[in-house]
Design a protein around this nucleic acid. Structure first.
Length: 107
DNA sequence: ACGATGACGGAGT
DNA sequence: AACTCCGCCATCG
């Protein structure tokens, strides 16, 4: 497994409940600015087994990225259970919920 | 080992 | 502002 992958997993597992991060953001922090798709692949293959809170990952617009299948509904439900307001289109407010690990030290 | 894949992102139309 | 096009790069078959 590549360093990037380990980093990405750590970062995603560090997202607090009720917060979200975008694929690209995770990729950047993991050391690969253009690696958003690798994040997708990580979630695709090992989200469950690694215990990654996959539902807290949304695209850069704050929308649920999953295609319109059961997973999408599941993600929406999980987010709402964590207290997020999910709009009808399956979108949340990044203004309110995006998690910024790089600012955490400053706070 | 090589080519296809993918829950993306951002530049261009 | 919405939509399409294409680059990206770790994994998987």
């Amino acid at each position: 497994m590549q360093e990037f992958t380990k980093q990405a997993i750590e970062i995603m597992k560090s997202i607090p409940q009720g917060k979200v991060m975008s694929y690209g953001q995770v990729a950047r922090l993991a050391g690969s600015p253009k690696g958003a798709r690798q994040v997708v692949r990580i979630l695709h293959s090992m989200s469950e087994k690694e215990g990654i809170p996959w539902h807290r990952i949304v695209n850069v617009k704050g929308e649920i990225a999953m295609q319109d299948h059961e997973g999408r509904y599941t993600q929406r439900t999980l987010l709402e259970e964590e207290g997020l307001a999910v709009e009808p289109g399956g979108k949340v407010s990044l203004e309110r919920y995006q998690h910024f690990p790089e600012y955490q030290s400053k706070r």
